[in-house]
Amino acid sequence: MTELDYAWHLREVMAERGMHSTAGLRPLLASRGVDLSPSQVYRLVVDKPERLRLRTLMALLDILDCAMDDLIEPLTSRGVRDTRD
Score class of each variant (00 low, 15 high):
16 E>I: 07
42 Y>R: 12
33 G>N: 04
24 G>F: 05
41 V>M: 15
6 Y>K: 03
6 Y>E: 00
38 P>V: 01
17 R>I: 02
25 L>E: 00
27 P>K: 12
14 M>P: 01
36 L>N: 07
18 G>S: 15
71 L>H: 10
23 A>R: 10
74 P>I: 05
54 L>W: 13
29 L>E: 03
66 C>A: 13
6 Y>T: 00
41 V>I: 11
6 Y>V: 01
64 L>I: 03
29 L>F: 13
8 W>H: 02
74 P>V: 05
57 L>P: 03
74 P>E: 06
78 R>K: 15
80 V>N: 02
17 R>V: 03
50 E>Q: 13
38 P>K: 07
30 A>Y: 05
39 S>C: 04
67 A>E: 14
74 P>S: 07
3 E>T: 12
63 I>W: 03
52 L>D: 14
24 G>N: 06
9 H>V: 01
53 R>L: 10
60 L>I: 08
48 K>A: 07
85 D>M: 11
75 L>E: 06
45 V>F: 09
47 D>S: 05
65 D>N: 08
81 R>I: 13
7 A>T: 04
76 T>S: 03
30 A>L: 08
60 L>W: 02
84 R>H: 08
79 G>R: 04
43 R>M: 07
73 E>T: 14
59 A>P: 02
14 M>V: 04
70 D>I: 08
51 R>K: 11
68 M>N: 04
76 T>Q: 00
25 L>D: 01
71 L>Y: 10
84 R>A: 13
2 T>D: 14
5 D>S: 12
54 L>I: 12
27 P>H: 09
64 L>Q: 02
58 M>D: 07
28 L>I: 02
5 D>T: 09
68 M>K: 11
24 G>W: 05
56 T>M: 06
53 R>F: 14
65 D>C: 05
32 R>Y: 02
37 S>L: 14
30 A>F: 05
51 R>A: 08
25 L>P: 00
32 R>P: 01
70 D>N: 11
11 R>I: 01
68 M>Q: 08
77 S>Q: 10
37 S>C: 07
7 A>Y: 04
4 L>I: 11
41 V>S: 11
61 L>D: 09
37 S>M: 14
11 R>M: 04
61 L>I: 15
26 R>T: 02
2 T>P: 15
10 L>P: 00
80 V>S: 03
71 L>T: 10
43 R>E: 14
77 S>T: 08
41 V>E: 13
34 V>L: 12
10 L>M: 00
56 T>W: 06
40 Q>D: 03
4 L>Y: 10
32 R>F: 02
38 P>H: 05
18 G>N: 15
12 E>H: 12
43 R>A: 09
29 L>C: 06
2 T>Y: 13
30 A>I: 03
81 R>N: 10
62 D>S: 09
84 R>L: 06
9 H>G: 00
48 K>M: 07
82 D>Q: 02
11 R>L: 08
31 S>F: 08
69 D>C: 04
27 P>G: 13
63 I>H: 04
